[in-house]
Design a protein around this nucleic acid. Structure first.
Lengths: 115, 115
DNA sequence: ACCTTATTCAACCACCAGGTTGACAATCTG
DNA sequence: CAGATTGTCAACCTGGTGGTTGAATAAGGT
């Protein structure tokens, strides 16, 4: 899989991981705390965290036996940038097409603005 | 996998699919056109398109034997909404922490609340 | 009608992802 | 030290993903 963006998207393609991110946005948490709501073993959750960590979405520090997980919000920018870029491009194209269509029909009907 | 958001994220976790989306943002294209730059068979690309379609990222119409692919930009909103929501939350928390730290060092002698 | 072009379907394969159980490491607490 | 808590590692299973080749379908061009 290799590249960063792929890892980030893949990490968020799993509902459990997405839910963990959502909860971590509110506050840091330990592995067992995170595992509690889900019907899977704590080992499975540990694996999920590894995925999130390798995607750069979370970081873990050590605190006695506990290992608090912290959300790294900056990584979201990577996605947002990518998404917004192409969305904007596609929407502009849509608007252009819209303009063409309006121009074509507009010569007869004269409709003014769209939204 | 089931849910929409998972499918969208999973779809974009693949570099080829992401590249196809990027190209489709510029203009609609047929399957063979899309396949051309990649070192995979056209069948593989057809499969990728199926994934993108099931995620609601693209739609296909029929035009003679050709089957032009069109990007559906609206789906991006789903992701952006999700991402922005939690990023904002996490950043606010960061700012709160920042404020607490500033307050602590700023007053120095007066520690009242813990957290 | 026949051939060519565009695309999908089917069967197959190698590999990865998400889950399990069981053992181990690291730390606090009695 | 002994025991409980917290978390990871290793081995294993199952199912899905991305790729292949080969055949089938759909529509146009001649």
């Amino acid at each position: 899989m290799e590249d960063r963006l792929s890892r980030v998207f893949a990490a968020l393609a799993d509902p459990i991981r997405r839910d963990m991110v959502a909860r971590l946005a509110a506050d840091d948490a330990t592995v067992t705390e995170l595992a509690e709501p889900y019907a899977v073993t704590v080992q499975a959750v540990s694996k999920h965290l590894k995925v999130l960590e390798e995607a750069g979405l979370v970081s873990r520090t050590r605190q006695a036996q506990r290992r608090p997980v912290h959300l790294e919000a900056e990584v979201f920018d990577l996605m947002t940038t990518w998404i917004e870029r192409y969305r904007r491009e596609a929407e502009q194209r849509y608007r252009r097409l819209d303009a063409v269509l309006t121009a074509m029909t507009g010569t007869e009907t004269r409709e003014e603005e769209a939204s």
